[in-house]
Write a protein that binds this DNA or RNA. Structure first.
Length: 265
DNA sequence: CATTCATCCTGCTGGC
DNA sequence: TGCCAGCAGGATGAAT
């Protein structure tokens, strides 16, 4: 559900609310979540870090809480204690309450030591909006690979943060067919791809994310990048560059949208 | 390495 | 109106 831009917006919102606050207590409603109330009760939140679609709440003792929103996870910050639909956890803060809701229960919360967090972070690929994102590193990622460029973009161990919506949008902007093998990309195509990735992600951040069904801000409002989508969810709609109908195909069981004229094999 | 498929979950929509 | 198939911003692990 939330991809890098949505998680970045959530990070900014939560940063305002959480930094320098103390967790008074934690109530776990869904036992799938790998945190115990004693792990985080009394901890002081010093910082929030995002890598790809992962969020880490860093405590003053350097331990942390990993949060991944899965497809439908979201937070709601309220001044009163709430009991909400699909609520999986309630974090009682020194000021206010933060509810974690997640209808499909693909979201994750896990308490981590500093070593464990470093291990999780190093298992993730390059975040395209971080300082680690450089042409040299990007180019290295293609070595010894032949998978489709769509699957390449989606795999979090190569690049961290791109999901199903933005993969299609990035490939449209790059004019690259999603099934093209990365081993067959020309230098020009790789360079175009390299620059398109942060362009799309940053545009989506400016629009505060894409709200199609589940994603909402922690105050309940929506993003607006759904109005800027050019191919995602637009099967049969004329391409706004050339007028050809947008097509949908499945790559690894995921819907993929592209313009057959602008994105040739 | 890579693909395909199943699995984890729940809710919504569209077609009949 | 009711039912069922298929779909959904994700990730992982097994089998091939």
């Amino acid at each position: 559900m939330p991809e890098l831009p949505e998680v970045e917006i959530i990070k900014r919102e939560l940063t305002l609310v959480l930094v320098d606050q103390q967790i008074v207590s934690l109530e776990i409603i869904d036992p799938k979540l790998k945190v115990k109330p004693d792990d985080v009760g009394g901890k002081l939140i010093k910082n929030l870090i995002r890598k790809g679609k992962y969020l880490f709440w860093i405590f003053s003792d350097q331990s942390s809480l990993l949060v991944h929103l899965g497809m439908t996870g979201h937070f709601l910050y309220t001044s009163n204690r709430e009991h909400l639909p699909y609520q999986r956890a309630l974090i009682v803060l020194s000021e206010g309450y933060l509810s974690f809701c997640d209808s499909r229960r693909f979201g994750k919360m896990q308490y981590l030591t500093m070593t464990e967090r470093e291990k999780v972070m190093s298992s993730l690929g390059i975040d395209p909006l971080s300082e680690d994102y450089s042409w040299d590193r990007f180019e290295q990622l293609f070595k010894d690979k032949s998978l489709s460029v769509k699957n390449f973009l989606m795999n979090q161990k190569y690049l961290a943060g791109i999901g199903n919506i933005y993969a299609s949008e990035i490939l449209f902007l790059s004019a690259i067919h999603p099934e093209k093998r990365v081993s067959e990309l020309s230098l020009d195509e790789k360079r175009t791809l390299y620059s398109s990735i942060p362009v799309i992600l940053n545009r989506a951040i400016v629009c505060e994310g894409t709200t199609i069904r589940d994603y909402h801000h922690s105050d309940g409002s929506s993003g607006s990048f759904q109005y800027r989508l050019r191919v995602y969810n637009k099967e049969g709609v004329p391409c706004d560059v050339c007028g050809t109908e947008i097509r949908r195909l499945k790559i690894s069981q995921r819907s993929t949208y592209y313009c057959p004229n602008c994105q040739k094999r």
